[in-house]
């Protein structure tokens, strides 16, 4: 019988690029991204699904990559913080809003916030205040006190609305 713990091939698309690597069944998606694919922008803050720093988009849905095994993401399309900027390198409206509103200090939790907010605004471009707070309550920040993160979220939403008008 084949060793159930043996590494196997994982193929997935990350930020539109086809990537492949080997992963033992127990390897976390967060570790696969960071240490096998070298995409260290996704951070790990608690490894038990509370802090949200490791949030990525898996087939469009925000997930905690520390609670997903890499092998579960075989065949999926992932988006990480490295894929948020435009093709021309321009910061996305969400990234730009975090910069302008001083919505970040140490920047460690920031990738998770950017992903959570991007997911919300893609699904609910006119998200209400309550929806913004709700979507961001799954991410912990220890530096900012959240006020400027919420200001950034409102600005990103409003800018997206202006873009559509």
């Amino acid at each position: 019988m084949a060793d159930p713990g043996a590494a196997r091939e994982v193929r997935l698309s990350v930020n539109g690029v086809e990537r492949a690597g080997t992963a033992e069944p127990r390897l976390l998606l967060s570790d696969f991204l960071r240490h096998r694919l070298g995409l260290t922008g996704t951070h790990v803050g608690c490894e038990h699904g509370v802090c949200g720093a490791c949030t990525v988009l898996l087939d469009g849905e925000p997930v905690r990559s520390c609670l997903v095994f890499a092998v579960q993401a075989d065949g999926a399309a992932l988006r990480t913080v490295e894929g948020l900027a435009g093709e021309d390198g321009e910061l996305s409206p969400v990234q730009q809003a975090f910069h302008e509103a001083h919505g970040m200090q140490c920047g460690f939790c920031t990738p998770g916030f950017l992903i959570s907010l991007t997911a919300l605004l893609e699904e609910r471009p006119q998200a209400s205040e309550e929806e913004l707070v709700d979507a961001l309550s799954g991410n912990l920040c220890r530096c900012t006190g959240y006020a400027n993160i919420l200001a950034a979220a409102r600005a990103a939403r409003d800018r997206a609305a202006e873009g559509r008008a």
């Binding site: 790990v44 490295e82 910061l91 990234q95 975090f98 460690f108």
Partner: peptide, 14 residues
């Protein structure tokens, strides 16, 4: 900000 926003920060485990 810019490096950190792009996921280009370099923290210890990175």
């Amino acid at each position: 900000d810019e490096r950190l926003l792009r996921g280009e920060g370099r923290f210890l485990d990175d």
